[in-house]
Simulated scan of single mutants.
Amino acid sequence: MPKPIRMNHRSRTAAWAVLCAAGLAATAGLNASSAPDPQPENSVSAECAELIAGIEKQLAKVKQKGTGEEVLAFSRLRIGTEDDCDDDLRNHFRGDQ
Results as ranks from 00 to 15, higher is better:
Thr81Met: 09
Leu72Pro: 00
Gln64Ser: 14
Ala73Gln: 10
Leu59Gly: 07
Val71Ile: 15
Thr67Cys: 11
Gly66His: 14
Arg78Thr: 08
Thr81Trp: 03
Gly66Thr: 04
Phe74Asn: 03
Thr67Tyr: 12
Asp86Glu: 10
Glu82Gln: 12
Ile79Asn: 12
Glu70Cys: 05
Gln58Val: 11
Arg76Cys: 04
Asp83Lys: 01
Ala60Thr: 03
Lys63Val: 04
Val71Lys: 14
Val71Ala: 12
Lys63Ala: 15
Ala60Gly: 03
Glu69Ile: 08
Gly68Cys: 08
Asp86Leu: 09
Glu82Thr: 11
Gly80Lys: 01
Ala73Ser: 11
Phe74Met: 01
Gln58Phe: 05
Asp83Thr: 08
Ala73Leu: 14
Thr81Cys: 06
Gly80Val: 00
Leu72Gln: 04
Ile79Cys: 11
Thr67Ser: 14
Ala73Trp: 02
Val62Thr: 12
Ala60Met: 08
Asp84Glu: 06
Arg76Lys: 09
Arg78Cys: 08
Leu59Tyr: 04
Arg76Leu: 12
Ala73Asp: 05
Thr67His: 15
Ala60Cys: 02
Gly66Asp: 15
Lys57Met: 04
Val71Trp: 07
Gln64Cys: 08
Thr67Ile: 11
Gly66Lys: 12
Glu69Arg: 15
Glu69Val: 09
Ile79Lys: 13
Glu70Pro: 02
Asp83Tyr: 01
Lys63Gln: 15
Gly80Met: 00
Asp84Cys: 02
Ala60Asp: 12
Glu70Asp: 14
Leu77Ala: 12
Thr81Asn: 10
Lys61Ala: 09
Glu82Arg: 11
Asp86Arg: 08
Gly80Arg: 03
Thr67Ala: 11
Arg76Ser: 13
Leu59Gln: 15
Leu72Tyr: 01
Leu59His: 05
Lys57Gly: 00
Val62Arg: 13
Arg76Asn: 12
Ala60Val: 06
Gln64Gly: 06
Ala60Ile: 03
Arg76Trp: 11
Ile79Ser: 15
Leu77Asn: 11
Lys61Met: 09
Lys57Tyr: 07
Asp83Pro: 01
Lys63Phe: 09
Glu70Gln: 14
Ala60Asn: 08
Asp86Met: 07
Lys57Pro: 02
Leu77Thr: 05
Ile79Leu: 15
Lys57Val: 06
Val62Cys: 06
Ala73Arg: 11
Gln64Pro: 01
Val71Asn: 10
Val71Thr: 13
Lys65Cys: 07
Leu77Cys: 04
Glu82Cys: 03
Lys61His: 07
Phe74Lys: 03
Gln64Ile: 04
Glu70Lys: 05
Glu69Met: 10
Gln64Asp: 14
Arg78Phe: 09
Lys65Asn: 12
Ser75Ala: 14
Phe74Ala: 02
Glu70His: 13
Gly66Leu: 05
Lys57Gln: 06
Lys65Phe: 12
Ala60Pro: 00
